[in-house]
Design a protein around this nucleic acid. Structure first.
Length: 200
DNA sequence: GAGTAGATCGGCT
DNA sequence: GCCGATCTACTCG
């Protein structure tokens, strides 16, 4: 894949800016020889150093969060509520626990398989809108934790440019009890895109 | 359509 | 033991 986003894209400071730039990029997985993918339309930034909503705050290192401290350009996958997988992109250099949660894609590759994985025939918001649905749609498993985004299982390619006027900003979802960080405007999504989990 | 309870288990206190 | 970066199903209207 020559269209991989380069390591230099991920290994920068400024996870909030990177999150915004991930909108419009193409996320793919290859599982059992089957390729599925779509355009990233909704993301959230998390920063271990300064963000009380982040698993790794305040730069807390545990077996789970250790992945976030590795150099950017790898996957951070974890289980939530005992049943759902979340997919994040690790950013920044070694020692900084920054990551971007991918919350929704607009699917365009391997639609039949995506629909089968989700047990749904309609191609709408409920197919790939929301982090747990997206992970299920692309076959993202806990075993993919710490996988390189420059390998052949899961990767991100360059996409179409996104106009500033099409990017909407809000507080993040599901972190209302996370202290002061709960109000940070670190969620970005494509305004009006039908696959975004919540158009607010 | 809106609102809410329940599922279900690894990580951390 | 408690609780979570969620989703689904089921209720009520």
């Amino acid at each position: 894949m020559d269209n991989y986003l380069p390591k230099s894209f991920y290994q920068r400071a400024g996870v909030v800016q990177i999150a915004r730039e991930l909108l419009g990029k193409q996320l793919f997985t290859l599982v059992d020889g089957q390729r599925t993918g779509g355009t990233i339309v909704e993301v959230e930034a998390y920063c271990g150093a300064s963000d009380s909503a982040c698993h790794a705050f305040p730069n807390k290192k545990t077996a789970r969060t250790e992945v976030m401290y590795q150099p950017g350009g790898i996957a951070y996958v974890y289980l939530i509520y005992g049943r759902y997988n979340m997919f994040n992109v690790v950013t920044n250099t070694a020692g900084s626990a920054d990551a971007v949660l991918i919350r929704a894609i607009e699917p365009h590759t391997g639609l039949e398989l995506i629909k089968r994985r989700r047990g749904q025939n309609m191609v709408d918001q409920r197919l790939t809108g929301g982090p747990a649905r997206l992970a299920q749609a692309l076959g993202i498993e806990l075993a993919m934790n710490a996988f390189s985004l420059h390998g052949d299982s899961i990767w991100i390619e360059q996409g179409m440019p996104v106009a500033t006027k099409d990017v909407a900003v809000s507080g993040r979802i599901g972190v209302e009890n996370a202290g002061s960080g709960a109000l940070l405007p670190w969620r970005f999504f494509l305004s009006g895109n039908p696959f975004v989990s919540r158009l607010k």
